[in-house]
């Protein structure tokens, strides 16, 4: 399995608070291969961004990785210090965040920001780095590069800014890109342009992508595989086709049923009663049991896990007769 770029094993992220320890990410294992886009989907607070942040080494204290390992192309990265992690971020792992305005420095021209990043990660000289910056801007589809390279971030539209952020993430040809809600702040027509761009670039370069989003439609059109998170745990992992069309976990199927359809008329949308538990009130057993129509005694007792194949649903329902 030499083409596994990201290998996360039993990751656990905790936030110690005065009232006790909150577990934001609970025993997550996943892999992303070269050229593969893994979608991380879940509702707000499910821990999907937290997983992305721990891979980037950007957990805000007091948050900490309490257990588990993260390997990037075979190198362990979860136990590195800040300086070592800094040299990996940008060079080997690129990051794209939701709001392109806060990812760019408003006081510097976009060209200078690109040149700075390129020179930090490569040994190109200033003029060569500027040429490289122009190539990158052309690659992400910015028109009139010769003039635009000396513009400030506020002179670009939201979609164009997000293209610059993608160019920044690609500067050092990273092995992995963590994209956290990259299209959420954008309008649908621009959103489609950005996901198409992301997909094309990854296919051409063989970059592995972790695409964090709450939008199932974006996942369906962009990702190869999808991991569904609920209350800090993985609920289901599988190919997009399996998870969207044949969801195994009651949460995933409820989620699919609650999205209004573009084709079918339904009098009433399927609902999942209640809401996701807060981190300080996760019930024993399966975290979904209070909202689940199939829950049996075992679901209130034991936490279900996805087996070692890392595919399937974390649900006792699949295991015959064991819900009762």
């Amino acid at each position: 399995m030499s083409d596994v770029v990201l290998d996360v094993q039993n990751l656990r992220v905790e936030f110690p608070t005065r009232k006790g320890i909150l577990t934001a990410v609970d025993d997550i294992s996943l892999q992303i291969r070269q050229g593969e886009i893994l979608g991380m989907v879940g509702e707000s607070g499910a821990g999907k961004s937290m997983t992305g942040m721990s891979i980037l080494g950007l957990l805000e204290p007091p948050g900490r990785i309490a257990a588990g390992t993260i390997h990037l192309s075979g190198d362990r990265i979860d136990d590195l210090d800040d300086t070592a992690m800094q040299s990996i971020r940008g060079r080997r792992i690129g990051a794209i965040f939701q709001d392109p305005l806060t990812s760019l420095n408003p006081l510097f021209r976009v060209g200078d920001q690109l040149v700075e990043t390129i020179r930090l990660h490569t040994d190109l000289d200033k003029s060569a780095a500027r040429e490289r910056a122009k190539d990158l801007m052309r690659e992400v589809g910015i028109p009139a590069v010769e003039e635009r390279i000396d513009n400030y971030p506020h002179q670009f539209s939201g979609g164009m800014r997000q293209r610059i952020v993608i160019a920044l993430a690609l500067c050092a040809e990273p092995e992995l890109i963590v994209a956290d809600e990259p299209t959420t702040a954008l309008d649908v027509s621009i959103q489609a342009q950005i996901t198409a761009l992301l997909k094309r670039l990854c296919r051409e370069r063989g970059t592995a992508v972790m695409l964090v989003t709450h939008d199932m439609g974006v996942i369906a059109e962009t990702a190869d595989r999808v991991a569904v998170m609920y209350a800090g745990r993985l609920a289901e992992v599988g190919t997009v086709d399996d998870v969207v069309r044949r969801p195994k976990h009651p949460y995933t199927s409820g989620l699919m049923g609650s999205i209004p359809s573009l084709r079918k008329d339904v009098a009433e949308l399927q609902m999942i009663p209640g809401s996701m538990p807060r981190l300080n009130a996760i019930p024993p057993g399966c975290a979904f049991n209070p909202r689940c129509g199939h829950a049996g005694p075992r679901c209130h007792r034991d936490i279900p896990r996805i087996d070692s194949t890392h595919t399937g649903a974390a649900c006792w329902l699949g295991t015959k007769g064991e819900v009762a």
Binding site: V188, A192, M216, L262
Partner: peptide
């Protein structure tokens, strides 16, 4: 352009 869960247009060309 809108993402469609039932029939994902994975190789579409988006509106320019």
């Amino acid at each position: 352009t809108i993402p469609d869960l039932e029939a994902p247009k994975r190789d579409r060309s988006p509106m320019g």
